[in-house]
Each structure stands twice: as C-alpha cells, then as structure tokens.
C-alpha cells in the first residue's frame, strides 16, 4: 500500500492465486523450435548423481584391486644384469614389437609420428555432419569395422609368425635398408592400400572409410600389445604365455 489515493491492490492484486489461459498459437522460429520440453534436464541432480556414481565406482574397484594385487617391485636396478626379456611398459610394447621387424627410426619415430598426426587429422578429413552421434555411422560402417578388424588381425598374426619362423632377414639381409626400410614400408603400405580398396567396394562415405582405417589402427595396437605382453619370452622370441620366463610380464 502507498500513500496515494489509488490503492496498489486494485491495479496489481496481491492475491497470489492466478489463472492462466491459452490465448493463441503463434507459428515462428525461436531457439526452442524443434526442441521438445524433454530434450534437456537439470544437471543437478541428473548429471551430478551419475558423476558421483562414476567416481565412487572407480574408487571402490581400484581399492579392491589394490587391496588384493600388490604393485610389482623387482630387485634393485643393476646396469650389469640385463633383464631377459627386457620389455618396455606394456603400452609401448606394440612399438617394441615393430622394432623387432624394422629399422628403429621407422618403428620408433615414423610409424608412431604418422599415427598421431593422422589421428589429429581425422576431423579435418571427415567434415560431414550427417551421422554425428551414431555408433559406427551406419549398418554398413559396422560391417566395415568388423571385417577391417578381422583382416588386420589375420595380417598381423601372419606377419609376426612369418618374421619369427621364416625371417625376412634370412631371405635378404643386405643392404640393411632392404629388410629395415623397403620391405616393411612396402608390406605395410600394400596391406593398408588393399584394405582401402576393399572398403571402397562397399561404396562408403568418408566417415565409413575412416571407421575401417581407425579400426585397423586399434586392432593393430591391441594385437601387438597382446603379442608383446604375453607371447614374447627370452630374447623376445615367440613363446606360449604359460612358457614365459619368470618376470617376463612387464607389470
């Protein structure tokens, strides 16, 4: 109430009970067009509860894991006693595997460098937005990923076995550039090109081509890591996991 003659209540009644009516439907554009009311939810609590659960779950799993499995600790470092096999950390064992088959510069610098640059280039190669948020882009993409994975796995196992039991260097060892550079580069480039040609037969989109190639990369990383961790024994020769010398597991 004010001191004016007209009481405020008459213009803006203080009574909180109000009624609403739908007056008119207006067609037009606004930021909310095509966005149904169920499109979004409040972050508190919907998102935060999930984040809390992820944090608690991770912590509990790790606590249990750490309570039952102790972190390894070997003997004191001794430069005079070479470990056999001497393995890098497990996530570098795919690189160490490459090292067995080609020149160290190719295995340790060119290959990983190329992989990282190509990974970063992916979004600049595939610019279409027509299948964002769809796993493997499409049914076709799923098929391409599956067969690319099978192909890559088979090739890798074949190459690893070939270089172990027949050995490229027993066929040609001179000059060093042949087994170190030329053969690995041509074999790898050839196999990737073959994969690319095979993928093209599906008449894929750019993204589907990339799905095939990225799958080949992940399967390579996975397969070579497994080979390096579980199948490389004395002198980094192939053995069955149950024949690994003691201490060959790099963790």
């Amino acid at each position: 109430m004010t001191n004016n003659n007209v009481p405020v209540q008459e213009i803006f009644p203080r009574d909180p009970s109000r009624t609403y009516g739908l007056m008119e439907l207006v067609k037009g554009t606004s930021p909310m067009v095509d966005k149904g009311p169920e499109d979004t939810v409040m972050s508190w609590p919907n998102l935060l509860v999930l984040e809390l659960l992820a944090a608690l779950g991770t912590t509990v799993v790790l606590l249990l894991w750490s309570a039952f499995v102790k972190a390894p600790l070997r003997e004191l470092a001794n430069p005079n006693v070479t470990e056999n096999p001497a393995k890098a950390a497990w996530y570098f064992l795919s690189l160490q595997e490459l090292l067995l088959h080609m020149h160290p510069v190719l295995a340790g610098l060119v290959m990983p460098g190329l992989v990282i640059v190509l990974l970063m280039a992916i979004p600049y190669i595939d610019r279409s937005k027509k299948d964002v948020g769809k796993w493997f882009a499409s049914k076709k993409g799923r098929k391409i990923a599956f067969w690319s994975g099978v192909y890559t796995f088979a090739c890798l196992i074949g190459l690893v076995l070939f270089d172990e039991f027949i050995r490229v260097r027993s066929i040609v060892s001179q000059p060093e550039a042949v087994p170190g550079w030329i053969i690995p580069v041509f074999v790898n480039a050839g196999l990737i090109l073959l994969l690319y040609r095979a993928i093209r037969r599906w008449r894929p989109s750019r993204r589907e081509v990339l799905v095939g190639l990225f799958t080949a990369f992940t399967v390579t990383y996975f397969t070579l890591t497994i080979v390096g961790v579980f199948f490389r024994g004395l002198g980094m020769h192939l053995v069955w996991p149950w024949d690994l010398p003691p201490g060959a597991l790099p963790f």
Binding site: L73, L76, A77, A86, K87, A88, Q96, P104, G108, P250
Partner: peptide, 20 residues
Amino acid sequence: PWDQLSYWAVTVSTNIVGSF
C-alpha cells in the same frame, strides 16, 4: 622405483629414441 623392471624398461625406451 629404481628396480630392474623400471631400469630396463627405460633403457629399452630411451635406446629407441637414441637410434633416431
């Protein structure tokens, strides 16, 4: 930890770098 595992893993890895 400076044990055999760490010493030789690092030796192997840095040798790769050294071959560039």
